[in-house]
Every structure is written in structure tokens, then in C-alpha cells.
């Protein structure tokens, strides 16, 4: 167990260090999410309710996550890094967990900027929204990492990932928007936690088949 976690930590540290040196993904995600919020300001006519803005916040989060996920396995495929990872004496699911942790880290950084920016541009953010975002991030990263690994195997990888990911993200949006806009967020947060648990288990169990032949 500790060996497994040590493998995960090593692999995740590899991704974070790569990002710190190249700065490919996180700045792009930050710029994208702020730009998206500015676009949303002009998309909402004057007099639109705060609820509409909160719904758009979730659109911004899902698409920002998508941006990060598209980049997640590019080095693995282009530099054939994946062969090295597969030869490493560690469980294949550790690769998934480490990559999910790294993507989660990037997404959290983007949201640490996006949520205050949203509060500044539109309306204040309550605890339920923050809890919803945190729970949704877990599910998005768990599922998205498996799908990103699938998409890079295809020919049109940047095109493929949104198609694979968005239908699976619909329940996350439902849970997240429900937690943000309704007066009783408990059941929506519970639903998000259920989604995280179910898809984390199936992603963990199936990742090995995605990367091996």
C-alpha cells in the first residue's frame, strides 16, 4: 500500500515538475477561464439573473478542465513516454492515479483564480458552490484522465476528447449547478460524491486496459 502510494507520488511529482519547467498547461487554463468569464459577461444580456451566471460558471469549469485534459497525455504519446511508464515496475492504475492528481492540481490552480474572478465579475460564491466545485473536480479528473488516455490513441485526438468527455460530464454539471443554485445543496453534493466514487472505481479498474495492448 505504501509502495503504491510512493509510486503515485513519484509519478505525480514527475508531471508537476514537467509543468513547472515547460509551463505549457496551467497558464493556458488560467487565461482561458478568465477569457471565458469575460465572454460570458457579454453573453448574458442586462437583467439576466445571477442563476444564469452560476450556470455559466459550470460551463467554464468543464471546458477549462477539458483544456487541461487535452494536454494531459501529449508528452506520453509524442515523446513515447508511455512506453517508459509501462516498463516501470509499478501498478498501471498508479499511472492513472498520479495523472489524475496532477490534472486535479492544475484544475485547482485554475479555479483558485476563476472563483474569485467570478465573484468579482458576477456575484458572490457560497460554501455550497465551493464544495460542489471540489467534488466535481474529483469526478472530472478521474473520468477525464481515462478518456484523455483513450483519445491520444486516436488520430484526431484533440477533436475526440470533447466528444468522449461531454456526455459523461453532464451528470457533473447537473450536480454542480444544483448545488450552486438551489436552496438545499445536500442531495446534489451527495450525488456528486456518488458520481466520484462510482467513476473512480471503474476508471481505476479499467485504466490498465486503456494503456496496454
Amino acid at each position: 500500500m505504501t509502495a503504491y502510494l510512493a509510486d503515485v507520488a513519484t509519478l505525480a511529482r514527475k508531471d508537476l515538475r514537467l509543468e513547472l519547467r515547460t509551463r505549457n498547461t496551467v497558464p493556458a487554463m488560467l487565461l482561458f477561464v478568465v477569457a471565458a468569464l469575460v465572454v460570458f459577461h457579454f453573453a448574458l444580456p442586462a437583467g439576466s439573473s445571477e442563476l444564469a451566471a452560476k450556470g455559466l460558471l459550470w460551463v467554464a469549469i468543464v471546458f477549462t478542465a477539458l483544456l487541461g485534459l487535452t494536454r494531459a497525455f501529449v508528452a506520453e504519446r509524442e515523446q513515447r513516454l508511455i512506453d517508459g511508464l509501462l516498463l516501470a515496475p509499478c501498478d498501471r492504475s498508479a499511472i492513472w492515479l498520479a495523472k489524475s492528481v496532477a490534472v486535479l492540481g492544475f484544475l485547482v490552480v485554475a479555479e483558485v483564480v476563476a472563483l474569485p474572478a467570478f465573484a468579482l465579475f458576477f456575484s458572490g460564491i457560497d460554501g455550497a458552490t465551493v464544495a460542489g466545485v471540489a467534488l466535481a473536480d474529483l469526478g472530472i479528473c478521474a473520468v477525464g484522465t481515462v478518456l484523455a488516455a483513450m483519445a491520444v490513441a486516436g488520430r484526431a485526438r484533440e477533436l475526440l476528447l470533447p466528444l468522449l468527455f461531454l456526455p459523461l460530464a453532464i451528470p457533473v454539471v447537473v450536480g454542480g449547478v444544483g448545488a450552486s443554485v438551489t436552496g438545499h445543496p445536500g442531495r446534489y453534493l451527495g450525488f456528486l460524491a456518488l458520481y466520484d466514487a462510482v467513476f473512480a472505481i471503474i476508471s481505476w479498474a479499467s485504466f490498465e486496459y486503456v494503456v496496454t495492448e
Binding site: L168, P171, V174, F191, L194
Partner: peptide, 12 residues
């Protein structure tokens, strides 16, 4: 897995 999860989501 998505079928029951989506069903629940749409119901919510």
C-alpha cells in the same frame, strides 16, 4: 455505468 447515473441526474 452512465445509464443509471444519468437517469439519477436527470431525475434530480
Amino acid at each position: 455505468v452512465l445509464i443509471p447515473v444519468s437517469f439519477l441526474a436527470i431525475r434530480l
